[in-house]
Design a protein around this nucleic acid. Sequence first.
RNA 1: GGAGGAAUGGCCGAGUGGUUGAAGGCGGCGGUCUUGAAAACCGCAAGGCCCGCAAGGGUCUCGGGGGUUCGAAUCCCUCUUCCUCCGCCA
Length: 430
Amino acid sequence: MLDRAYLRQNFEEIKVRLANRVDPGVLEEFAETDSKRRAAVTEIQALQERRNELSALVAKARRGGEDALDIVRDARNVHAEIHEREASVNALDEAMDSVLSRIPNTPHATVPHGTDDSANLEVGRWGDRPEFSFRPKPHWDLGVDLGIVDFERAAKLAGSRFAVYVGAGAKLERALMNFMLDRHTREHGYAEILPPFVANSKCLYGTGQLPKFADDLFKLEGTDYWLVPTAEVPLTNLYAGETLSADDLPILLTGFTPCFRSEAGSYGRDVRGVIRQHQFQKVELVRIVTPEESYDALERLTLDAEDILQSLGLPYRKVLLSSGDMGFSAAKTYDLEVWLPGLDEFKEISSCSNFEAFQARRTGIRYRRSPGRKGKAEFVHTLNGSGLAIGRTWLAIIENYQQADGGVLLPDVLQPYLRAERIAPGGSLV
RNA sequence: GGAGGAAUGGCCGAGUGGUUGAAGGCGGCGGUCUUGAAAACCGCAAGGCCCGCAAGGGUCUCGGGGGUUCGAAUCCCUCUUCCUCCGCCA
C-alpha cells in the first residue's frame, strides 16, 4: 500500500499519476476517511489524557491516606466515554486500512501512460525466429502427437485446464526446473528456497493478491490456507515483519513452486494447450534491496530472466508495460514475451516488476542503514519476476525446435539434464 | 489429536496493580585515555499515531485481540506461535 501521510500530503499529484489505475471515488473515500479518523483520534486522545490525569490524582490521594471517591467517580465517567468512542475509532481504522489496500501503486516516471496494453512500449528484441520448411504445429498438436502431454486423462483427474505430462514431457519439465534453478544460483547469485505451496491470508494480503483478487485464487476449505498463485508470495513474505540490517541487503531469492490459479473470468481464452492452466510450474526470482538501488535491480533481475531465454535459444521481445496494463502492486514492469511459431505470436513468459516499498509496507519488511538501534528503520524495496514460467518455456521449446519429422531438438544447455539430443517422433529421448 | 509450560526493547534477562516505556548485562553510537587498537572509564540511545509552521505537547505499544479496574507488563478470557511429554504418521 501507499504511505498514508505521503498520499495525504501529495494528494492531487498522486490522483493524476493514478488516473488510469483507480476509481477516483476510492481516492475521495480515502481523503474523507482520513480526516474523519484523525478528528476521532484527536478527541479520544484528549479523553485519555484526562483519564490519566485523574488516575494520577487518585494514586496521590491514596498515598496521602484519602479515599478520593469523587475523583474516582469522575474518572469512571471519562472511562465510559472513552469506551463508547473506541468502537468508532476502531471502525475508522479498519475503513482506513480497507481503502488504502484498494489503492494501487503509483507508476514510475519512466512508465508510459495508457489505459491498456496498446500503450505498452517494446524496448528490445532478441533472437531470430526459426524458419520452417513446413507449417509449424501448435504445441497441443505436437505434444499430443508425441505422446508427451495428455489433456484427456488430465480431465479425468481434475477437469479442464490441467495437463498430465508423460515420459519425455515430464522429464523436459523437470530438466527446465533444474536448469533454471542451477543457472540462477550458480551464475546470478540467488539463494535457492523451497517454500510451502500453501500460504495464509496475511501473506497474500502482503504481496497484494488479497483483498482484491481473491477470485483468482484457490482456497482450502475450512482453513486459512490458499494454494500459492506464484512463489512471489512465500519468497517475499519470508522476511515479513522483520527489520534487516543494511549488511543483509541485497537479498536474492529463487524458488520453484507449482502455481495455482482459478482463472475465473478467462473462459474461452487460451483454452487449448498449456498456455493457461489451473496449475503450472514456475521458477521465481525475488530481490529485496535498498530504495536507491531498486531500479538498477529491476534491470538486473530482468536480465537474469532474459539469460534463461537466451541460453535456451528462444527468440523473445521485451515490453515495458503502460500504467494501465501493470499489476496492482507494481511501480514498473517489464514483460518478456517469447516467440511461439506454432501459435504465430509472442506470448508472455516472464513479468519482472519493481514494487518499490508497496509490498514492504504491507508485509512490514524494514532495514536499518546504520548498525545497532541508531538510524531509523526504513522500508525496503521488493522486486520479483518469473525466471521463467516453466510450462510456457516447455511449449516454446517444442514449438521452436520442432522438426519436419515431428520430433523436437533439445537446446544444448538441456541435453546434459536429459541425457539426450532430441525427442524422437515416437516421444522417446534419444 | 491430548496434557503441561512459555512469549518483555537489536539480543539476553529482571519485573505480579500506581512516575516501569520498562532494572541489569551484551551489542550499538559518541567521548576520555592511546602513535593506533584493545582494555578501562564517562555519556547517548525504542517505535507508531495525533495536535503544532516550529519548539514542543499528547496518546498508544511488554506476542495479537478483548475484559476487570480510577489505574494493567503485572489479574481474567481468547487467539497465535514456540518448547516438553503422550498418541498418530510419510
